[in-house]
């Protein structure tokens, strides 16, 4: 319940309890420390960190960014300092800000996921949940390959589930036709929820030099341009009623967020919008509350999945 408003914004995704449905998308908010200079990030349902691997990763060669019409391509390639760095340097700071944390992790294979999970085990009481990034489009190993192999999704989820007691969220890709099957496998492996969609594989080419705009040739497309695709994926997965969904892909303002909730997402992820408006998350929470207030709806759960027919 939000104080004074009389409107319930809290949602449950299985064991994951959020005070409001707005979380950040992995890779667009780092660990929340930079954005905490712009607003109190503890007001968010949760901060989803960038994906951490077992050891540090250099990331992909630049250029890594190319803007497209109402969207962007990125090929960061999961540059990160490794899970130990997160635990020692980021976690104490973001915890002290009072934010709920969903830690995103990434491995090249099930073995690496297990190694990361054993490290995370030491601090799991500080985390709300762990998100398994099984769908990064920008890395050769793992990443996109997992999303086209639902059996791997189950194997990895199950392996991490045996190590950690906190809830697991599995992030799936729009770049294969197996979202529903992968979600079923994630559930079999013990996942609590799924987040969809990761970015869509795309590219751009310089017609003067004949070279791709990105050092990695392809990148993940995100931003408002992909919203209808993401929304359709959320709708059909929600209709299949497998696991609670964190819906994401092109959410720019509160209207987009409400659309995803109505399409069946129990929570929403704000990603690229954070780059454009550093206060996007805060504004979306306020916008959803005002929308419900104007509609005379006292509980956000009453609109979740209303569009499903």
């Amino acid at each position: 319940m939000i104080e004074g408003s009389g409107i319930n914004l809290s949602v449950n995704l299985g064991r994951i309890k959020l005070k409001n449905p707005v979380v950040t998308c992995s890779g667009t908010f780092s660990s929340g420390l930079e954005y905490s200079e712009f607003y109190d990030v503890s007001i968010l349902g949760a901060v989803t960190t960038k994906s951490f691997s077992f050891v540090s990763r250099a990331g992909n060669p630049p250029p890594r960014i190319w803007e497209t019409t109402c969207g962007m391509l990125n090929s960061i390639g999961l540059q990160n300092e490794g899970i130990d760095f997160f635990i020692k340097n980021h976690l104490p700071k973001i915890k002290s800000l009072g934010a709920k944390i969903i830690l995103s992790i990434f491995g090249d294979d099930p073995g690496e996921f297990k190694k990361i999970a054993r490290e995370v085990k030491k601090v799991e009481s500080s985390l709300l949940a762990v998100e398994l990034n099984l769908s990064c489009p920008n890395v050769k190993e793992g990443g996109i390959a997992f999303s086209s192999m639902p059996a791997e999704v189950e194997k990895i989820t199950e392996a991490v589930c045996k190590i950690l007691e906190i809830p697991l969220i599995v992030k799936l890709s729009p770049n294969s036709d197996s979202i529903i099957e992968s979600a079923i496998r994630a559930k079999c492996g013990g996942a609590e929820a799924v987040s969809i969609i990761n970015s869509i594989v795309g590219t751009a080419i310089d017609i003067d030099t004949f070279k791709p705009r990105l050092g990695n040739v392809t990148g993940g497309m995100s931003g408002p341009a992909i919203k209808p695709i993401a929304l359709a994926k959320v709708y059909f997965l929600a209709k299949a009623d497998i696991l609670p969904i964190i819906g994401m892909g092109g959410i720019y303002d509160w209207r987009d967020a409400v659309e995803f909730l109505v399409a069946g997402a129990s929570a929403v992820g704000v990603g690229t919008a954070n780059f454009v408006d550093y206060e996007a998350g805060k504004k979306i929470i306020e916008g959803i509350r005002n929308y419900l207030s104007k509609k005379g709806i006292n509980d956000i759960n009453k609109i979740i999945g209303k569009a499903i027919c």
Partner: peptide, 17 residues
């Protein structure tokens, strides 16, 4: 100079070697 997305060190888009 590099193309940037966030401008605040979050996205790692404007990487240089």
């Amino acid at each position: 100079e590099e193309r940037m997305a966030c401008g605040v060190g979050v996205c790692r888009g404007c990487a240089v070697k």
